[in-house]
Amino acid sequence: MSRQASRFDSKKVNAEFLTLTYGALVTQMLRDFENVEDVNKQLERIGYNMGMRLIEDFLARTSAPRCLEMRETADRIQQAFRIYLNVQPTISNWSASSDEFSLVFETNPLTEFVELPQDLTNLRYSSILSGCIRGALEMVQLDVQCWFVQDQLKGDNVTELRIKFVRRLEDAIPAGED
């Protein structure tokens, strides 16, 4: 019973549509919230919601088996970036205990036309990415922390996303069910 990848709709959309739509959302949020930190939180939240739904799509598309260690998880995340955003981040900087690593992006489709003004340097523009990873992994019982170490928008050469394994989540039975 092998599943055919072609069964799934792998339609493509111009990346600029995503870039501009996301940009419009961020601009709107800056208008809605006074505090930039609130915008960061809200963007992360949106990413989290997307990740929770995206993992389903990913598992169906790739028929990926369960990961046994973080190194496999890292490969899957890299693969997901290729499928969904058409970018190939490099996996690097593993911690000695293999529970923490970095995804390094040469390009980031979300920030294609973006420049941060000087007074918004504490805006984490691409927070949606870290939220997405956290949400998706939570659905496969992995609790992780995810944050930006470097960001091209802030003048760094690359964008670096750090991911740290926190703990394995236990399946909880919904209240009211045996």
């Binding site: 959309v13 600029e16 995503l18 739509t21 949106i46 955003l85 489709p109 294609e112 949606i128």
Partner: peptide
């Protein structure tokens, strides 16, 4: 100026748009 030919998956765009509507 980029050629603008890069593509991304429709799934991610649909999910983002859904979040935008909800927000």
């Amino acid at each position: 100026l980029s050629k603008g030919k890069t593509e991304v998956s429709q799934s991610i765009v649909a999910l983002l748009f859904s979040e935008i509507v909800q927000y």
